[in-house]
Simulated scan of single mutants.
Amino acid sequence: MIGESLIDIVHDDRAGDASGPLTTEYPGGSPMNASIGLARQGIDVQFATEFGADQRGDRLEERLVREGVDLLIAPRAGSTATASAHLRADGSAEYSFDLDWSLGCGDMPAHRPVDVLHFGSLAAAMHPCCGDLENTVRAARTAATISYDPNIRPAHDTDPVAARVRVERQARLADIVKASDEDLAYLYGDEPHAAIAQRWLDAGVALVVITRAADGALLMTADTVVDLPAYAVEVHDTIGAGDAMTAGLLAGLGTLGLLGADRREELRSIDERTLRAVGDWAQQTAALTIGRPGAEPPTSAETRDALLQTSSRSVAA
Rank of each mutant, 00 (worst) to 15 (best):
S5T: 12
I7G: 02
A15T: 14
S19V: 09
E25M: 09
P27Q: 05
G28E: 05
S30A: 15
A34S: 15
L38K: 04
A39I: 06
I43L: 09
I43V: 15
A48R: 05
T49D: 02
G52F: 08
G57Q: 14
R59F: 07
E61C: 14
E67Q: 14
V69E: 02
D70F: 09
L72M: 12
A74P: 03
A74N: 13
S84Q: 14
A85M: 10
A85T: 07
L87R: 06
R88I: 01
A89N: 11
G91Y: 09
Y95G: 03
S121A: 14
S121M: 12
H127Y: 01
C130Y: 13
C130F: 13
G131C: 09
D132W: 08
N135R: 15
V137D: 01
S147R: 06
I152T: 09
D157N: 15
P160N: 10
V161L: 12
A163C: 02
V167D: 10
E168I: 10
V177G: 07
V177P: 08
A179P: 05
L184V: 06
A185E: 08
L187D: 04
Y188W: 09
G189Q: 04
P192L: 11
A195G: 05
L207I: 11
L207G: 04
V208P: 04
A213R: 05
D215N: 14
D215W: 03
T221L: 04
V225P: 03
A230Q: 04
A241C: 06
A241K: 01
M245I: 03
M245T: 07
M245P: 08
G248P: 07
L250W: 08
G254K: 05
T255R: 13
E272S: 13
E272W: 00
T274W: 01
Q283C: 14
Q284C: 14
Q284I: 01
T285L: 08
A287R: 02
L288P: 05
R292T: 08
E296G: 00
T303Y: 06
A306W: 08
A306V: 03
L307F: 07
L308S: 14
Q309W: 10
